[in-house]
Simulated assay, not measured.
Amino acid sequence: METVIRVDSLGKTYGETVAVEEVSFEVGRGEIFGVVGPNGAGKTTIIECLTGMRSPDSGTVEVLGLNPLKNGDDLRRRIGVQLQQAALPDRLKVREALELYSTFYDSPADWRGLMDRWGLTEKRDTVFSTLSGGQQQRLFVALALLNDPEVVFLDELTSGLDPQARRASWDLVRDIRETGKTVVLVTHFMDEAETLCDRVAVVDRGNLVALDTPAALINGLHAESSLSFSTSNGFDPARLRHLPGVSEASRERDRIVVRGESSLLAPVAAELDRRGVAPRNLKMEQATLEDVFLTLTGREMRD
């Protein structure tokens, strides 16, 4: 896979505060690459260094073979950036913003097509200040795509959106990748990273603490899965303890809980069927990227 982003020993401090320390990674063309971490972990600083908005104190950064600081003008023609903290003039209309920003580029994408694709056509004559949070986010993404970029940076794209709007945004992120673009997605939603990202970089206290596919990170926990259900009779859960992949089976209140390997569902279901037991309200729980995140970064509150 062709490397489009290369970060080598990136470091950035603000006075005595170390924001990023010795971070290194590469991003391949066509990836959706996630950057996750607690508040203040250094995620935004990394993105700002990648897009030329901040100067690293140490290390090297290349995006599309360009130095973001030395070749800033050339790079900005080839990347798109949607930042979490962004704003437009209150009275600027949606169509006015898209039409205006399209004049900044020699060969812009069709702004009307972007307006339609991101569900903004009905809001074309609505001023920025009266758009909902989700509509504002979609407008910023559309603006980031006006130059038909090769790499798109999305910073907390779905923050503040309702579940329906979040899921719709996920489909649009996939669409961006399907057009051949590379996406760098900064998010604090672990389900979002697990669903969308080909690989995820976990950043904590300015350090890169893990980097792999979501599946590999989850498997690396070696965490047990659990299967719970209720029955209409006094079934003894001890009858399940001998099954392959099962490490424990017990009754917890009115439910039977079976713990073990991720493959435990099949043998448990077969054994229940053999004994004529019909489980009700069956629920399977497996480790998620959120479990990885909490294991690596801890559970204490962060400001």
Rank of each mutant, 00 (worst) to 15 (best):
S263M: 11
N71Q: 15
L243N: 03
N207E: 12
D148H: 12
K70P: 03
R253L: 11
R91E: 13
I47V: 15
R77E: 08
E156S: 05
A278H: 11
L289C: 08
E26P: 12
N281E: 15
T297F: 10
K181F: 09
T231K: 01
D125W: 06
C49D: 07
V61S: 01
G42E: 01
M115R: 02
V61W: 12
A142E: 03
S263H: 14
V246N: 00
L100T: 13
E21C: 13
L289W: 11
D125M: 00
W111M: 02
D291G: 08
D106I: 09
G34N: 07
T126N: 10
D155V: 04
P149R: 02
D171W: 10
G134C: 11
L211H: 07
E96R: 01
V246F: 10
V277S: 01
V292M: 13
A19K: 03
G80N: 00
L294G: 10
L83E: 07
Y101W: 14
T13L: 11
D106N: 05
N39D: 14
A97S: 12
L196R: 01
D303N: 14
D90W: 13
R255F: 03
F128D: 00
L143H: 07
S24F: 03
R167K: 14
V151M: 06
L50C: 13
V183R: 12
L131F: 11
L217I: 09
F25E: 02
T130C: 09
K12W: 12
R280M: 13
S159P: 13
E192V: 02
R6T: 07
P244Q: 03
V36A: 10
K283L: 13
D148C: 09
T60Y: 06
Q164L: 14
T121L: 04
E21K: 15
L157P: 15
M301H: 10
L75K: 03
L143E: 05
L294H: 12
T103D: 07
M115H: 00
R177I: 08
F229R: 01
L185E: 05
E192F: 11
M53C: 09
Q82T: 03
V186Q: 05
F153R: 05
T213D: 11
K283S: 15
P89E: 02
G72M: 09
